[in-house]
C-alpha cells in the first residue's frame, strides 16, 4: 500500500514534469526570461566580465534565443553548471537550454534523453607540446608524459589513440584546465591534451605562446552544440532554427550592420523569408515574423559572433577551420528556410 502510494506520487510528479516540459515556450514567455545553462567559466565560450555580464560564444546562442522569443537579448538568466550537474539541471527543468560545450554523443542523445539541436562548434582533441622537444607529429609521442583532465571523453580518446598507434604514455591526471596550465608550464608533463579550442585558449594565456606548438593531429570528433530536453519539439525547433538562422545569415550576408536595410525588402526571397518580410515562418512555431531578425541583430550572424568571441582577432585566436560555411570548405550547413 505504502509502496503504491509512493509510486503513484512519483508517477504523478513525473507526469506533471512532462506536462510542464511540453510547454517550455509558454513557460519562458510567462517568466520573461530564458534559463540558460552555461559552464562555470571557459575562455571564449562563457565567462562573466568585470561587470558580471556573461560573454562568450555559447552565451551568444542563448542571447539570440532570448532575442527571438522575448525580444530582449539580455532577458537570459545564466545558470552556471559543472560537468556533473549540467544534464540534471536540464532534465529537472532548472534550465531551458544547455549551451555548455557539450559533445553530441549517442548515449547523451538517447540514454540521457537530451535533444541536441545542432552543432555550433566542431571541435576535436589535440596535443600541445613545448617547441624545444622538437616534436612535429603526434606519432612521435611514444613514452611521453601526458597531462589529461580526468573523467572526460578526452581520457578515453587518448587511450584509444595510443593503443591504435602502438605507443606507450604516462598519464598525469589533473582536475581543471587552470591546474593543467600550471603543471604543463612547470614541466610535470611533456604533452597537454584537450580540445583544440581549449589548447588554443590555454596557449594564448602563456607568457611566450610561440614556445609551444599544437600538433596537427586531431584525434577525435567533438561536435559541441546546444541541447534541450526530449519531448518538447516546439521548443527544440525554436532553438534549432535560431541557430540555423545565425548560420544562414552568414551564408546570405545578413549582418548586424546591414540587417535594418535588408529588412526593408530585398530581391533574395530566402533573405526575405528569414527576416520575415515574405511568408510567415515564425507563426509556424508560435513566434512573430521578426524572430530571426531579432536573433541576428542581438549579436550578429554566426561569423560575427565567432570573430568577436573566439576568432582570429581575439586573444584566443581560433581559425574557422571546420567551422567555416560549407561554401568555404567547412561543415556549417543550414537547411533552407522555406
Amino acid at each position: 500500500m505504502k509502496k503504491s502510494v509512493f509510486v503513484g506520487a512519483f508517477a504523478a510528479s513525473a507526469f506533471a514534469a512532462g506536462f510542464a516540459q511540453a510547454q517550455t515556450l509558454e513557460t519562458v514567455q510567462e517568466r520573461g526570461e530564458v534559463n540558460c545553462g552555461v559552464s562555470t567559466g571557459l575562455a571564449g565560450f562563457s565567462a562573466p566580465d568585470a561587470n558580471g555580464v556573461w560573454q562568450g560564444f555559447d552565451v551568444a546562442v542563448c542571447r539570440a534565443i532570448a532575442a527571438a522569443v522575448l525580444d530582449d537579448p539580455m532577458a537570459v538568466n545564466f545558470v552556471p553548471t559543472t560537468g556533473q550537474t549540467r544534464f540534471s539541471a536540464l532534465a529537472s527543468g532548472e534550465v531551458d537550454i544547455l549551451s555548455r560545450n557539450t559533445t553530441w554523443t549517442f548515449s547523451r542523445d538517447v540514454d540521457l534523453r537530451l535533444t541536441f539541436v545542432g552543432t555550433n562548434y566542431y571541435d576535436g582533441q589535440g596535443f600541445m607540446v613545448n617547441r624545444e622537444l622538437g616534436v612535429s607529429s603526434a606519432t612521435e609521442l611514444d613514452g611521453a608524459t601526458v597531462c589529461i583532465q580526468t573523467g572526460t571523453t578526452t581520457e578515453l580518446n587518448l587511450a584509444d589513440y595510443f593503443r591504435v598507434n602502438g605507443m606507450a604514455y604516462e598519464p598525469v591526471p589533473i582536475e581543471t584546465n587552470a591546474e593543467a596550465q600550471q603543471q604543463y608550464l612547470a614541466g610535470s608533463c611533456d604533452v597537454y591534451t584537450t580540445d583544440v579550442s581549449g589548447l588554443a585558449a590555454t596557449r594564448a594565456s602563456f607568457e611566450n605562446p610561440g614556445d609551444h606548438v599544437i600538433l596537427p593531429e586531431v584525434i577525435s570528433k567533438e561536435p559541441l552544440g546546444p541541447a534541450v530536453r526530449h519531448g518538447d519539439d516546439t521548443w527544440a525547433d525554436i532553438v534549432q532554427w535560431t541557430l540555423f538562422a545565425l548560420i544562414a545569415a552568414e551564408e546570405l550576408g545578413i549582418t548586424s550592420a546591414n540587417i535594418d536595410s535588408l529588412k526593408e525588402g530585398t530581391d533574395n526571397p530566402e533573405i526575405n523569408r528569414i527576416l520575415g518580410t515574405e511568408g510567415d515562418l515564425g507563426a509556424m512555431f508560435g513566434l512573430d515574423s521578426d524572430w530571426a531578425a531579432r536573433a541576428i541583430a542581438a549579436g550578429g550572424n554566426y561569423g560575427e559572433i565567432f570573430s568577436a568571441t573566439i576568432g582570429d582577432q581575439t586573444p584566443i585566436g581560433l581559425a574557422r577551420g571546420l567551422n567555416a560555411q560549407w561554401t568555404q570548405g567547412g561543415l556549417l550547413y543550414a537547411p533552407p528556410f522555406r
Binding site: T40, V79, P80, T82
Partner: peptide, 19 residues
C-alpha cells in the same frame, strides 16, 4: 563550487575564463 554556485573559488575559475 561543485554544484555550480559561484563562491570565491568558483569565481576564480570564472575570472580565469575571461580572455
Amino acid at each position: 563550487v561543485f554544484i555550480g554556485l559561484l563562491d570565491p573559488v568558483g569565481l576564480s575559475n570564472a575570472i580565469r575564463a575571461s580572455t
